[in-house]
């Protein structure tokens, strides 16, 4: 297994750890971001070919797979939108509770 895969696994685990353990609203958001990045990293590494070229008018036969990159670009845009929304909600929650401890935000249960 190559380094990028290991790195993305590590990122993913850190992200999951962050969401599971951290109580701070914003740290949860960081955790989410980390998970997203890990997947992006994974996807990009999928398309990587050792010694490959840019696929636009290549000189040789070995090219990098462009599709994962396109996917990652799209995913980043989506993640951006999600994160922005999360942060805005977090700010409103912070204003209402005057606290960022997520374990206190459990009016909805049962």
């Amino acid at each position: 297994m190559s380094l990028p895969y290991l790195a993305s696994l590590a990122l993913f685990s850190i992200g999951l750890y962050c969401i599971l353990v951290k109580r701070d609203l914003f740290k949860v958001i960081y955790g989410i971001c980390l998970m997203e990045f890990s997947i992006n990293l994974f996807l990009v590494s999928l398309g990587f070919v050792t010694g490959g070229e840019v696929p636009i008018s290549p000189t040789g036969t070995i090219v990098v797979d462009p599709l994962p990159q396109a996917m990652v670009l799209t995913a980043i845009v989506i993640e951006f939108a999600t994160t922005v929304f999360l942060i805005s909600v977090a700010i409103r929650l912070f204003k209402q509770y005057e606290d960022t401890d997520i374990s206190k935000m459990r009016r909805l249960r049962g």
Partner: peptide, 13 residues
């Protein structure tokens, strides 16, 4: 807001 936050976090994961 609380529901929305949880919804976003879970569905993002």
């Amino acid at each position: 807001m609380e529901a929305s936050f949880k919804y976003v976090v879970l569905s993002t994961i």
